[in-house]
């Protein structure tokens, strides 16, 4: 199936792998992004994403090989540890959320950079490729990477679909949802787990530093163009996929790191949508001057 898809694209095989891989990644990240944006936890996700770096480095040091399977396992472990650390700091130590995020994000990045520098200085021949986890690299993607993205991505999107009512209610009105039986810790754990999947899948292609932008920008763009979550999620997925493909191909041709190119494209789409969206865009709003119903109700 995957083989057939890769061979039927009018592209050389390595390019086809990049196109399909970045499209799948962009769709998964874009569709899961609303869990961050609509719950106002974008910076929480950013800290989780940075926290994948020390995990990747430690996994390499322990396993002695740059095989992506081990490294992504390490990334998942340290991203989850960071999420738990931030939650514990806020809940138990009564540290303000922004302070907890700031501490975890900068400590993770520092630790990651120290470990990566140490690995580079040992001149280990295996260390080639580790730097991809910083700023991302689409070239060199192989079929197994796509298979992993498709498998985990399908599971994550399936969970999003099954838990859609719960996640939408709890994100929109946490108080009401808790009263009717949505346990807040289950909602937090489910959405953090799904985000961890998206981050781990994307960290090698987009990079730990920029991954959050691929989660946030498609959602911001799609929010401008839709009025319900059921439409926002697939549209954000499509915007993420488009940014992934374009960025993946362009970065390969121009020999640029993939992460910044993908993120610049996704952000451009978001900025255009914020400015020019038909109803909610800055331009449309300034033309209609008065928001139609907000203050006029008393007069009716």
């Amino acid at each position: 199936m995957l083989n057939w898809l890769l061979n039927s694209l009018p592209l050389p095989y390595p390019d086809a792998v990049v196109v399909v891989g970045t499209a799948a990644l962009g769709f998964v990240a874009g569709a899961l992004g609303p869990l961050l944006v609509l719950r106002r936890r974008a910076m929480f996700g950013d800290a989780m994403s940075h926290a994948t770096l020390p995990g990747v480095a430690i996994a390499f040091l322990l396993a002695g090989t740059a095989s992506p399977g081990y490294l992504l396992l390490g990334a998942a472990a340290s991203a989850s540890a960071a999420a738990l650390a931030m939650t514990a700091m806020v809940r138990s130590a009564r540290i303000a959320p922004d302070a907890a995020i700031g501490v975890v994000l900068s400590v993770s990045l520092t630790l990651g950079l120290v470990l990566l520098t140490h690995i580079a200085s040992t001149g280990d021949s295996q260390q080639a490729g580790l730097n991809a986890y910083l700023l991302g690299q689409a070239a060199g993607m192989v079929e197994q990477d796509i298979a992993l993205t498709l498998t985990l991505g399908t599971i994550a999107l399936g969970c999003l679909l099954v838990w859609f009512r719960l996640l939408r209610s709890a994100s929109f009105d946490p108080g009401f949802s808790a009263v009717i039986g949505a346990r807040p810790w289950i909602v937090d754990a489910a959405s953090t787990g799904l985000l961890a999947v998206a981050i781990v899948l994307g960290v090698r292609t987009v990079g730990a530093i920029l991954m959050v932008a691929l989660l946030v920008a498609p959602c911001v763009a799609a929010r401008q163009l839709t009025t319900t979550l059921a439409r926002l999620v697939p549209l954000a997925g499509l915007i993420g996929a488009a940014a992934g493909v374009t960025g993946g191909v362009v970065s390969g041709k121009a020999e640029l790191p993939a992460g910044p190119v993908i993120v610049l494209i996704a952000t451009t789409v978001a900025v255009l949508a914020v400015l020019f969206a038909p109803r909610r865009g800055v331009v449309a709003r300034s033309r209609t001057a008065v928001p139609a119903t907000r203050d006029a109700e008393g007069a009716r």
């Binding site: 994100s171 009105d173 946490p174 108080g175 009263v179 319900t228």
Partner: peptide, 18 residues
Amino acid sequence: RVAYVPQQDAVAEDFPIT
């Protein structure tokens, strides 16, 4: 049997919902 109407500012303000 218990319906709750929270304070307005406890609800996500710009949520995509009809």
